[in-house]
Design a protein around this nucleic acid. Structure first.
Ligand SMILES: [Zn+2]
Ligand SMILES: [Zn+2]
Ligand SMILES: [Zn+2]
Ligand SMILES: [Zn+2]
Lengths: 131, 131
DNA sequence: CTTGACCCTGTAGTCGCTACAGGGTTTAGC
DNA sequence: GCTAAACCCTGTAGCGACTACAGGGTCAAG
């Protein structure tokens, strides 16, 4: 039940280059190699990679995921730190949404400009310092 | 009324290094230099830099701003292209908001986990492939 | 005239990948 | 058994939008 990097990539949906990148930065433990130097992966490694992938899909940074992986490896510990990390991340996401909504509102006021020339264009005016 | 890069930085709120960067990538025209090689800026240049800054504050990419600057320099032309660009950008912003709101909803379901151990932690479970 | 604040160039770092180039290895078909 | 395609390897460089030096030169105040 060992996989080459290509098979692992296919079963997890994570790019080959990305897997190598994760190993290089120490997010995955160095893969066992065949005699000719090819990486081999087992179910454990595939699980871990899927963990990382789901973390990315939830928008966690690789640093956050690095911490989450370490925490998840200690099932007996209290999960308070995990929860704190997730809450912090949720706060980040909400902040980004708030920032983008402000942008959205400003842009909404500008688009749909029906002026015919750049001289009177609302958008250009706003960028040029007009209020 | 000419400014050194430091003064320009102060009056516009754009970092000195960022100004040099903008010049390097051709977003600002190469600054006139003193005999000793110092950059000097006039009101025109300050205006243009503020234009770029406001564009960034509205979330436009530097490439988009490059186009906007060029368009703004032709006041006689119709502003349709400017408007199209801004509408496209608004669409991007809305897409990013939608993506983040999906993340927010998923994270909301996970945080506030009151389990005491990592073994039963909802968050770890979700990352490990649980639903 | 010295000191400190400013300016210059060039390079490298950030984040999370992605895309080569230039090799070696394995596998499938004939 | 041989060849060609498909795979794997390392190392390096690129993206966007900056930021942070190092190692120098210049200018202004006291
Ligand atoms: Zn986060
Ligand atoms: Zn317009
Ligand atoms: Zn945009
Ligand atoms: Zn928990």
């Amino acid at each position: 039940m060992t996989l080459t990097i290509g098979k692992l990539s296919k079963t997890t949906g994570v790019n080959v280059e990305t897997i190598r990148y994760y190993e290089r930065i120490g997010l995955l433990t160095p893969a066992v190699r065949t005699e000719s130097g090819y990486r081999t992966f087992g179910e454990r490694e595939a699980e871990r990679l899927r963990f990382v992938k789901r973390g990315r899909e939830l928008g966690f940074s690789l640093e956050e995921i690095r911490t989450l992986v370490e925490l998840a490896d200690q099932p007996g510990q209290p999960c308070a730190e995990v929860d704190r990390l997730a809450e912090g991340h949720l706060a980040e996401v909400r902040q980004r949404i708030a920032d983008l909504r402000r942008l959205e509102a400003e842009l909404e006021r500008l688009v749909g400009c029906t002026e015919s020339s750049v001289r009177e264009c609302r958008i250009v005016e706003a960028l040029s310092g007009g209020r």
